[in-house]
């Protein structure tokens, strides 16, 4: 069974149609890249998958392990293994990063019927994971994302992913805002998490990221649907020719 099946998904925001009969299947262990022009609905798709309630789903379904998740709240989806690395991670003043990470991890484990992490085990986990991703202890002491630079916020997203160990990770333009070295560190972090049990949707505008995180498939989105799918060479072709032919096709 596929891990994720999105069937004929239609989504509106404030009466504006954004997703327009989108179909997409993600297999277990697959890394799928999604590319597409600005405003084609990539972030909307990622929010809808994570369960943000500002969106009105007028038609279609989203199946995780063959079961609809449309009725599930974001926390329940997270417990089932859905994780979104935000394109624009928010600052949460007054909520300490460690408290946040720990509350999230234990809440997910609880929903799955697993035991809570002990304090020493948790601290060890965070320390090791953050070291690998180049997130400093000083950043961990701050409130979530507060005063972080754009790139630091993106790293913090991947740190959360590495700690929460999702089964379906959606990375929404994680590469934007990262410097060249950070792009490498973060990609290595992502690659370490690649496994037959974990699928990823990597949303990006740039072929460069896909040199580091090599996708199994590439999907092109335009005007709220997937208009073309292919192998990793599709990304190279897009880089050379742009989206014109696909956006015309969709029109």
């Amino acid at each position: 069974m596929s891990l994720l099946e999105i069937k004929n998904l239609h989504v509106e925001v404030e009466d504006k149609k954004i997703l327009n009969g989108l179909n997409l299947t993600i297999e277990k262990g697959q890394v799928a890249a999604i590319m597409g022009p600005n405003g084609s609905g990539k972030s909307t798709l990622s929010y809808v998958l994570a369960g943000k309630d500002a969106y009105n789903i007028t038609e279609g379904d989203i199946l995780l392990d063959g079961e609809s998740i449309l009725e599930l709240a974001p926390d329940e989806r997270a417990a089932k293994g859905v994780f979104l690395a935000f394109q624009y991670p928010v600052e949460v003043p007054g909520v300490a990063t460690m408290t946040f990470l720990r509350t999230a991890l234990n809440a997910q484990r609880k929903l799955r019927g697993e035991g809570e992490y002990s304090t020493p085990d948790f601290i060890k986990l965070v320390r090791e994971t953050s070291a690998k991703l180049g997130v400093s202890q000083e950043h961990l002491r701050r409130a979530v994302n507060v005063g972080f630079s754009g790139g630091e916020k993106k790293r913090n997203e991947i740190l959360q992913m590495a700690i929460l160990q999702p089964r379906l990770a959606i990375l929404d333009e994680t590469d934007s805002g990262l410097d060249i070295d950070a792009l490498k560190t973060v990609s290595e972090g992502v690659n370490r998490l690649r496994s037959p049990e974990r699928s990823m949707i990597v949303i990006t505008h740039y072929q460069r990221l896909l040199n580091y995180i090599v996708p199994d498939v590439v999907h092109v989105m335009s005007k709220g649907r997937v208009v073309k799918s292919g192998g990793k060479e599709l990304a190279l072709e897009l880089e050379a020719k742009g989206y014109a032919q696909y956006t015309d096709e969709a029109a």
Binding site: A50, P74, D75, A78, A79, A104, A107, Q108, L111
Partner: peptide
């Protein structure tokens, strides 16, 4: 939403 997307109810 950010907090809930991490599994916090």
């Amino acid at each position: 939403f950010y907090l809930m997307s991490r599994g916090i109810d």
